[in-house]
Amino acid sequence: MKKRLISSYDEVSDTFVGKVDGENGFCADYDISNGVFLGIDDDHFPNSVFVGNASEVLNTSKQTLEHSNVKISIDCDSICLYFNMFIEDLKVCSIRCRNSYGIPNISFEMDSNH
């Protein structure tokens, strides 16, 4: 499944926010790894991402985070969640964690260029 990502980065507060275009609200927000928060909707599908202290958490420059070409892929099975974030085709984040969030088996991509 592929959806359009709307993302923004605020250099002053060093905050990255991304959400699926056309989706409003969320059911829950989960800290999937050291400050990377994943929002899910009522059907337990991912619909937003929030990263505070983004340059530090993602270990990349503020200039990189200002680019608008962002892609986030999320793959889940009954055991693990795999989260990858790319900016300008550079992988800036890769997380593997336990899927204790009720997210169904999916292969999901949020892409700013979709």
Rank of each mutant, 00 (worst) to 15 (best):
1 M>P: 14
1 M>T: 14
4 R>C: 09
5 L>D: 03
6 I>T: 11
8 S>P: 00
8 S>M: 12
10 D>K: 06
12 V>A: 12
12 V>I: 14
12 V>P: 06
13 S>C: 07
16 F>N: 02
18 G>R: 00
19 K>W: 06
20 V>P: 02
22 G>W: 07
22 G>Q: 13
23 E>Y: 02
27 C>D: 12
27 C>R: 14
28 A>T: 13
29 D>E: 08
32 I>V: 07
32 I>L: 04
33 S>I: 02
34 N>G: 13
34 N>C: 10
36 V>G: 11
39 G>F: 06
41 D>Q: 04
41 D>R: 04
41 D>I: 00
41 D>P: 03
42 D>K: 08
42 D>F: 10
42 D>E: 15
42 D>V: 08
44 H>V: 04
46 P>S: 04
48 S>R: 15
48 S>N: 14
48 S>W: 07
48 S>E: 13
49 V>M: 07
50 F>H: 15
53 N>E: 12
53 N>K: 10
53 N>R: 09
56 E>M: 04
56 E>I: 09
57 V>M: 03
57 V>Q: 05
58 L>W: 13
58 L>R: 03
61 S>M: 12
61 S>L: 03
62 K>L: 02
65 L>G: 00
67 H>F: 00
67 H>C: 01
70 V>G: 01
70 V>E: 00
72 I>W: 00
73 S>V: 08
74 I>F: 08
74 I>G: 11
75 D>A: 10
78 S>F: 09
79 I>D: 09
79 I>Q: 14
81 L>N: 02
82 Y>V: 02
83 F>D: 01
83 F>R: 07
85 M>D: 05
86 F>M: 02
88 E>H: 01
88 E>R: 00
91 K>L: 13
94 S>P: 05
95 I>T: 10
98 R>H: 08
99 N>W: 09
100 S>R: 13
100 S>M: 08
102 G>E: 12
102 G>R: 06
103 I>A: 01
103 I>D: 03
103 I>Y: 07
104 P>M: 12
109 E>V: 15
110 M>P: 04
111 D>F: 03
113 N>R: 14
114 H>Y: 15
